[in-house]
Design a protein around this nucleic acid. Sequence first.
DNA 1: ACCTGAACACCGTTCAAGT
DNA 2: ACCTGAACACCGTTCAAGT
Lengths: 230, 230
Amino acid sequence: MPPRTGVTRDRVVEAAVRVADASGAGALTMRALAEALGVAPMSLYHHVPNKEAILDAAVDAVFAEVDLPVVGAPWRAELRRRAASVRAALVRHPWALALMESRRNPGPATLAHHDAVLGTFRAGGFSLAATAHAYALLDAFVYGFALQEATLAFRDSAGGPGPSGAEGRPDVAAAADGLAEVLGGGAYPHLVEFVGQHALQPGYSFAASFEVGLDLVLDGLERLRARGAG
Amino acid sequence: MPPRTGVTRDRVVEAAVRVADASGAGALTMRALAEALGVAPMSLYHHVPNKEAILDAAVDAVFAEVDLPVVGAPWRAELRRRAASVRAALVRHPWALALMESRRNPGPATLAHHDAVLGTFRAGGFSLAATAHAYALLDAFVYGFALQEATLAFRDSAGGPGPSGAEGRPDVAAAADGLAEVLGGGAYPHLVEFVGQHALQPGYSFAASFEVGLDLVLDGLERLRARGAG
DNA sequence: ACCTGAACACCGTTCAAGT
DNA sequence: ACCTGAACACCGTTCAAGT
């Protein structure tokens, strides 16, 4: 599948996101990227300085998908919607989380994102000090939850596109199966209870804890706000 | 520095942690590991099946450093101490967080860790459903906070041991310097305000938000517990 | 049993050369 | 200006060979 037109920086970044979505971060090599674009590996270097720049741009592309909060609108509803949007983006692009940790150059979408969140806190009556604590807590929760979801999910080597609506419940069952042998002895009684009596029960969904946790966090933020500067 | 005695699995894992601490995950190659042990690269494969197994064991070694909660003791104090201990371990071993995301085989220390936390929740009066939500929220916060700290810290390519007491404040200044040019225009006004008026001020410390956030999370867990099963 | 060098199929990237 | 093949210094790992 040769490209209709020449390679561009944007086309390289789009392809990078597509390849990572389909096959994971490990499959995102310059050679694979070039093949996806129907071009020789070295051609990429005419539109991008190196692989790092591609990763920077790919992470920024994920941030560009996030539903920004509206500065001045009721902070709690806005930040609730934004938190769910960040998590959804990270579920769509599980490779992005690990990359974010090593990025040093935030792109325009990333900067606009942080600006909107900070503005929403400030307009909602949070002092600068409270905003710092609140933003740290809120994003620790959002990113940490996404990290746990990524850990539970199985996107080992292969990975394929997979059902896009697979929000429900990762393979807790498979993980538990692998553990069954180890759990044989009397060690880890609470782990056995939890997995057997709860996590493996029909109705269980790890994702359900997101809403519960988010509301508790937002409750905490409201008390932080009411408490004043600090 | 040739080893006094032969290579063992434990010695390989110790060396892996040491190399990653000193030079980052990127420097953790089979060849570098072999050199650190004064042995040929292929010798490692007599004590470990492959690199994946080394990474699994290295992550478990980090969990082994964590101060476990005492099941049956007051849950809030125990889990507070444990949360701080996890964060401290991840500050000592920043490479571990990214690795945890891709590990599929929890080791004995990891299992004992989860067992102790689950037991502490249960003995503290949390229902199984409440325990699931509480554990998800608590660890989302702890891991997410560590993720943000790792993102803020600069441990780019080189890395060296660094001052072990460097808990204080990562290079927010350096990050802001790099941004100064971009922030020139009127875009990102809230980001400019936050960085200029708060994050760059003398007393500021991102780490200080950990205690604040942790207490808000623990308050939330207490309400979750009191609310009952769910 | 433990260790090893050579070799293979990969990486990202430099360089000189093409159009 | 854009693209490219060959080559370099790396990876993890297999294999046959040593002690």
